[in-house]
Structure formats: structure tokens, C-alpha cells
Design a protein around this nucleic acid. Structure first.
Lengths: 368, 368
DNA sequence: TTGTACGCGTTATCAC
DNA sequence: GTGATAACGCGTACAA
């Protein structure tokens, strides 16, 4: 176990015949420095493989370089996408990403997070939905002296501290697209109450229906929990309605999958008899049968922007804070059979894994 | 932005009328301490909300409290499960978890990771498959002076530095179970060459077939990439074989899903005409139609054990290092139609989301 | 049982 | 431009 101590700034100073401070200036790229001495010092640094000790830096600067990712998110892909996005931004900086999965139902939630931030002396934290919707939490983090950036489905905060998707518009556009496909009876599966994302998607559904001149019928609307089973329950209700809906918008993919199970179990053909659209573009969406048309957040881009806002607050306001989602069109949604349109329904044998599937199609959403 | 400086050990010492060192003893739970002074100091600590600065501690102790999770893993759920497991173990310690997704195909992989470890002065790292199979990488980490624990599908390392599932046995048992269901023609989809997990699962398949007295037929075996599309390709090959296999073991769920698409596309009924078993128990497995019988790693337990080995090397050898997987039985595998068994195939309308599904059944694997 | 002096690796101050 | 010297917050010798 090679345990030879790592070279310090003193070693570099001694070997290059300058003072510690000069080495420090080289490291921090001070502008007022003789080019010759800089070169000399840099040579010694390279030779020794010297790397500044971040703990000592943090101590002297009274400032840390850890950013925390706090989440309680059921969507593993999203969390991982965020981690990758953040990493891309901080890759060549001295920042590191420390993660903290939490349980939003724990009564000790706030205390846990407070302890986490205080103990690690975090520079900043990034909050993922749904806990990003918790204003009390965000305030507490700020009171602890760390910058906060929240990721969400709507304008939860000032733009310097926010990165959000416009779920409302994305859903409205998707629903309107269904109407363009000839669907007139469009059902809806809402997410759980208390989730901002669920509420935005509901509003978007109403917007889209209104734009299409279609009425909202409570008989073909249900509230779920974002879980698979609740999608099945919604299937029990909505598929029994008369007349049956010809299309369904589900507030997430998991419920859409549950709903689809029920539909297939009743011998309903998708998309010939019924179109389904989900939300999230989870791995499941691409792998179920038929492949699910769904709305996708530009997660990595959002995470990159969020990380920028975190590590460079001065630049935060200039970074975009609202992102538009793409509709990933797969086989689960097609022209309404009863409509007068000329498009044939997507063939049931289409796997939806051609080139049109692996790269998102033209977004339904538009800049405004 | 409340920016009042946090209380330091000096503040505590002053207010409680003792020296720094005494406070330090309280923090570190030194046994030789007057109970009265301890109580007094603890009161002041609580009152001030004092939290020791980990950076200063790290500096003084010449030892850090960051553990790194390095991974390049396509299975988001597994990565997140590991993160949660690690967190459960380090929750009440001063350790923090810093994550580093990497690209195993990058030529700079080793340099990237070296830089990461040196820059953050990591205490230890945890390697996830498939990069945990890279001996050169593990050696480099150790040369950098940080302890390494690897997670994998087989005995990659000494037990102090390893947490592994016994994929070979799990697959063998699952395949043997298929034979007990009456299947005699069992196909196999292998994972990509160069993956240790893929190799172990292949060996397990061969073991299981041998135990069942069944021959290996290359006509119903295919090699995939662990990706969905390769499962479809395997479907094209294996479903064209004569006679057609009555059961398939796929080395992961994603390929199983691709295979299933092809089977359903050809009008083959699952499980009546064909049984399918996957590996990983991803979210997809539970959500596709029919729900997929699959092998599941006890990921959280493994991650907890791995974290223990990391932060307490003295205790490492006593922790278990080989974990047994569970077979999650769902609707996709059933009695072979042509067999003489009395069990009826699972009804096609079963959603597989009853109680028997949400909690794993009795494991097929046994302690040895 | 408790306190003093010093070191850990770095940056900031303020001379030169 | 560059270099002594003092922080930063905490732990360890060693003395009391």
C-alpha cells in the first residue's frame, strides 16, 4: 500500500526556489507574475505530480467546493441523468458532487438535510422534484448560507435559482396533437395531489382540450399516485366509461404502463382502438409493448444549466431557466380510427426502434 | 443571506470555560473525561449548534472522509440502489458519498479517475460493474492510497475488497427450475464478451442445463450486447429455430424485453407458448406485458456491506462478500405446455402485481 | 483529567 | 513581482 505522502506546496516551493505564495499564485493563475518563474514552477508541479489539497484550500478560503444533490425521486433515470449533467459542468473545476437521497415522508427530513449541509459545509445544493417544491426546505438551505438551485416543473423560484421544464405547455401541445389526430374523446390520468408537476400537467391537459374545443369529461379522468398500480386502477375506471375514450394522456409513464396492462387485458388494441401518451420517457416507455409515446424533459441540459447557476451565481441570471420538452413519438399513439383523417394507424408490428425513435422528433413545443 | 460565521471549537472552548483540547476530547468521545465537564461542554455545543468542520479535521488528521462511487453502469436503478445502500451505512458517520459517472470507453478513463481521486483526496472508492472488473483500475486506486471495494458478479478480488453476487449459481438454479417446469428446449441470450457478469451467467446456464441433463444447442443460443435491440435480434434468430425453444433465459431484462417484442410480434403467446426469464429486475421487468420473471441482486444489502468494508477495513473480512440472488417469479415463465406436469400455465390476464409479486418469493438459490 | 504549543496545507496581508 | 508571517479549525505531543 504505497503511502508516500503527497507533495505539498512547500515541496514545490523548495524545489523551484520560490516562496509558497508564488506557487500559490501560479496555481490560482494570478495575472501579475513573471512568465519565467511561472514556467519554472509549473515544470516542478508537473514533475512532482503536485495536486493542491482541497481540504486545506477550503479551510483557508473559508469556502467549500462540494455541491450536494438532494433528492427523493422515484425516477432513477432522471436522477442519474441529472448526476451526469452536473458532472459534465463541474468536470474541469475543483467542485465535487455529493449525493443525498432522502425520504420526503420522514418527519426528520429538514433536520437530516440541515445536518448534512452543516456537516459537509456544502457550497450549494441542488434540489430535485418533488422535494424541490418545498419552499421551507429551500429557505432553510439558504439560511444555512448555501446557494440553492431547484429543478422543477414550473416557476418555483427566481430564475437565478431555478431550472424548470414547462410541463403545462408540453402537455397542452401533446393533447392538442391528439386532437389533430382526430381524437375527440381524450381521457386523463392525473398525478397525486400536492405535487406541483401533477398540477401543471393537469392545467396543461385542460389548456390543450380547450384549445381543441373539446370538453372535459370527469367520467374519463382519474387521479393516480404516479405508481403502476394506480394506472391499472385508472384503467378499470376509464375503460368502463361509455363511450370509451379513444385516447389517454397519462401524467407519467409508469401509470401509462399500468393502464396499458389493463387495456391489453381487455383485448383492446393499442394504438388501433386506443392511443396512449405518457410522460418522463423512462426506460420502460421504450421497452413496453407497444412502445410508448411520451414527453421527455431535456434532463441533462437542465442539469448542466443548474450546475452552472450553482457554481457561478454571478452568471446565473443569464442562463436559461425554462426548458421545453420533446414529445417522443412512438407506436402507442396514432390516428383515431373513427376520424376522417387519411393517416393510417401506426402498424402494430412497428417496434418503434428505428432511427426516428432514437433521436427525438421535432418537438411539439415551441419557443414562445 | 445570513452569513454569520459558524461557531468553531474555540467558541465552544471559551463559552464553556475549558480548552480546545477538552472540547476536542468531547467530540471524539475520549474515555478519560470528567463527566461533569463533558456534560457542560455538550450543553454549549448544543446551544451553539456547533458542528466540527470536516475540512479542518481532514487536514489535521491527514485523512479524508469522502468515499467515491465510480461507475459506468447502464442500469440506473442499480446505481441508485447502491447509492441508497451506501448512504444507509454512512448516515450517522462523518463520511460523505461523492459520485463519479465515467465512460469506460474513454481512452482517458484511468487518467480521469486518477485525477478525481487525487484532487478530492478520497478515503476510498467503490467500483461498480462493469468497470469493477478492471484490475488495472483497482490497482491504480490502491496505488493512490485509497481503499477499494469492488462490486461484481464473481470473485474478482480478495473478500475484504469485494462484494459479489453469485450469478453463476443464480442462473443455474433458474434454468434448472425451468427444466422442472417441463421445459426441455431452453434457449439462451448471452451478454457481451468481455463482461465478467456475462461470462458467469453463461457458465450458470451451462451448469443448469447439465444438471437437468439437457444438451446445449447453439441454434437456440445467441450473444447480445445487453441492449434492447440485441434482444430483438436474438428473437429473430431463436424464434426461427426448429423446433422452437419453449423457454428462454436472457442474461438481462433489457434483452428479454426486446426478445419479448419479437415474440409478441409473431403472435407467440407468453407464457403459454414460450417462457422467458430475465436478469436484473429493472423497473421494466415489472411493467412489461407479461410481467417478467427475473433474477434480482440484493443490491442494497450488498451496497451496505460494501460501504462497511470501505469505512471500517478492520472489520472488512468479517462482512459477507458473496450474496445470493432471488428469483422474482412473475407471469412470463410457466409450465411447459407440452409437458406432463399438472400445473396450468399462468393465466394470461394475470397482472402479476399481487402480493406474491411485490415481495420476492422464496429464493431459488440456496446457501452453500 | 486538563491545558499549551505546534503542525496540517493553503491563502491573505503587507511589506519589500 | 515576490516573500515572510499570520490566519483557517482541528488534532496530537507533551507537560502540568
Amino acid at each position: 500500500m504505497p503511502k508516500e505522502p503527497k507533495p505539498t506546496i512547500n515541496d514545490v516551493a523548495r524545489l523551484s526556489g520560490v516562496s509558497k505564495k508564488t506557487v500559490s499564485r501560479v496555481i490560482n493563475k494570478s495575472p501579475l507574475l513573471n512568465e519565467a518563474t511561472r514556467k519554472k514552477v509549473e515544470a516542478v508541479i508537473a514533475e512532482l505530480g503536485y495536486v493542491p489539497n482541497p481540504q486545506a484550500r477550503a479551510l483557508a478560503l473559508r469556502r467549500n467546493f462540494l455541491i450536494g444533490l438532494i433528492h427523493d425521486n422515484p425516477n432513477a433515470q432522471m436522477v442519474l441523468g441529472v448526476q451526469e449533467g452536473i458532472l459534465e459542468t463541474i468536470r474541469d473545476t475543483e467542485f465535487a458532487l455529493v449525493v443525498r437521497p432522502v425520504d420526503r415522508h420522514s418527519p426528520a427530513l429538514l433536520d437530516d438535510i440541515r445536518h448534512f449541509i452543516e456537516q459537509q459545509r456544502l457550497f450549494g445544493v441542488m434540489l430535485l422534484p418533488p422535494i424541490s417544491e418545498n419552499d421551507e426546505l429551500a429557505d432553510m438551505c439558504r439560511a444555512l448560507g448555501c446557494t440553492v438551485v431547484r429543478m422543477g416543473s414550473a416557476a418555483l423560484d427566481k430564475s437565478e435559482h431555478l431550472v424548470a421544464s414547462n410541463d403545462r405547455q408540453a402537455v397542452a401541445d401533446a393533447v392538442y396533437w391528439l386532437s389533430e389526430l382526430g381524437h375527440k374523446r381524450i381521457g386523463f390520468i392525473a398525478g397525486p395531489e400536492g405535487f406541483r408537476s401533477a398540477r401543471e400537467r393537469e392545467l396543461g391537459f385542460a389548456d390543450g382540450m380547450a384549445r381543441a374545443g373539446l370538453p372535459l369529461d370527469p367520467a374519463i379522468m382519474a387521479r393516480g399516485t404516479y405508481r403502476f398500480e394506480s394506472g391499472q386502477a385508472a384503467g378499470d375506471k376509464l375503460l368502463a366509461a361509455t363511450p370509451r375514450p379513444t385516447a389517454i394522456f397519462s401524467s407519467n409513464d409508469e401509470m401509462a404502463a399500468g393502464f396499458l396492462h389493463r387495456a391489453l387485458g381487455q383485448g383492446i388494441r393499442v394504438p388501433q382502438d386506443l392511443s396512449i401518451i405518457g410522460f418522463d420517457n423512462t426506460a420502460t416507455a421504450a421497452h413496453i409493448w407497444p412502445p410508448l409515446t411520451t414527453v421527455q424533459w431535456p434532463i441533462k441540459a437542465m442539469a448542466r444549466a443548474a450546475a452552472s447557476k450553482l457554481i457561478d451565481p454571478a452568471d446565473a441570471a443569464s442562463q436559461p431557466s425554462i426548458f421545453l420538452s420533446d414529445l417522443i413519438r412512438r407506436a402507442s399513439a396514432a390516428t383515431c380510427a373513427g376520424a376522417h383523417g387519411t393517416d393510417a394507424p401506426a402498424p402494430a408490428t412497428q417496434d418503434g426502434h428505428g432511427p426516428a425513435e432514437t433521436q427525438p422528433l421535432t418537438p411539439v413545443t415551441k419557443s414562445r
